[in-house]
């Protein structure tokens, strides 16, 4: 395995075919500058009219169970190396969409392709390659790390799951150092770390199989502001260094604005607006996007005199709040 930190080895191009798992791991791809400008060719994730229905509990003996369409005709393309944000309120279908993207759930209809390969109709046992290409960082670092496993085993688990047992020890140390932890933390347990450090461990675990796509589900919403900045910097750093495609889900618009190149706004299962970040924030087109932006309490605007009443007024213009925020 090559040394991690050096700018490195092979430039990663559109090879979607199977590569031996050991080759890429550990080698930092060449740092990519200004991901907006030089969009690398190729598509990382493609969604075609993806729908996901859930059946609710039957309410009547004579009628069929009511159906909730959690994700409705979502069509989107996420380019290779892009930083794609998904925002929406709770209940908007963000998490369902994310589960579909990661192959943890199957769509009711529609097609879903990751690096050109379909994942919507594959059983989990045929998605081994996806687990290597696409990795996840979850919201709550408390519950996404097994409290009974040592950090060493947590970080190595994606490798073990793919049948790699050789050289994991060195790889773990390399990864931990990459995310700003020292090598001696490998023997500790998750409870010995603070929230920010746990999230670093999660990032290290996600990087272990050398993925192309990093999916982050609200990775900073459980963290304090100062730690949030550290973790955002870390994600930015690894995405840059390894040339990853980032799918970043958050309910916090200011975080998404900071992190992403392009943002999709989700409401009631639909993507109501997809636009480059600056365009979306400067000139939101959809009324829902507008009300969402109006509701964000911002330090600078508040100091300029925006009150809680103004925030609420921006929301009220949209009309009554949709049911179910819990």
């Amino acid at each position: 395995m090559t040394a991690e930190t050096g700018s490195g080895a092979e430039p990663r191009r559109g090879s979607t075919g199977a590569e031996p798992p050991g080759v890429r791991t550990g080698s930092g791809a060449e740092p990519r500058r200004g991901s907006t400008g030089a969009e690398p060719p190729g598509v990382a994730i493609e969604l075609r009219e993806v729908c996901r229905d859930f059946r609710r509990r039957r309410t009547s003996l004579t009628q069929p169970a009511p159906v909730v369409r959690a994700v409705k005709d979502v069509t989107a393309t996420i380019g290779r190396g892009e930083r794609f944000g998904i925002v929406g309120e709770s209940g908007s279908g963000k998490s369902t969409l994310l589960r579909l993207l990661c192959g943890l759930d199957q769509p009711t209809s529609g097609e879903l392709l990751v690096e050109g390969r379909p994942i919507h109709d594959q059983p989990a046992r045929r998605l081994g390659w996806l687990r290597q290409r696409l990795q996840l960082v979850f919201q709550d670092p408390m519950s996404s790390l097994d409290p009974r496993m040592r950090v060493r085993d947590i970080v190595a688990e994606p490798l073990v799951a793919q049948g790699r047992h050789e050289g994991n020890r060195e790889r773990v140390v390399e990864l931990l150092e990459r995310v700003g932890l020292s090598a001696d933390v490998a023997d500790r347990y998750p409870h010995q770390f603070s929230g920010g450090q746990r999230q670093r461990i999660s990032v290290a675990r996600a990087l272990a199989p050398g993925p192309d796509i990093l999916v982050a589900d609200e990775p900073v919403s459980a963290l304090d502001v100062s730690v949030r900045a550290q973790v955002l910097n870390l994600i930015d750093e690894v995405v840059e260094a390894f040339g990853l495609t980032l799918v970043f889900v958050s309910h916090d618009l200011s975080v998404v604005r900071h992190v992403c190149d392009r943002v999709a706004v989700m409401q009631r299962g639909e993507l109501v607006e997809v636009a480059p970040t600056e365009q979306l924030f400067a000139a939101p087109e959809h009324p829902y996007t507008r009300s969402l932006l109006a509701a964000v309490p911002d330090l600078h605007q508040a100091l300029a005199g925006r009150t809680a009443q103004d925030l609420a007024a921006g929301v009220a213009r949209r009309g009554p709040e949709p049911g179910g925020t819990a």
């Binding site: 603070s194 450090q197 100062s226 900045a229 910097n233 604005r257 900071h258 600056e278």
Partner: peptide, 28 residues
Amino acid sequence: QGLIGASDLTGAEGRRGRAALPTIPGSV
């Protein structure tokens, strides 16, 4: 000062660009 720096994702004039955020080193 550190708190304000770390929580201010946008900067005074809209977007700050993708510069690294100022952080408070360490944790509580």
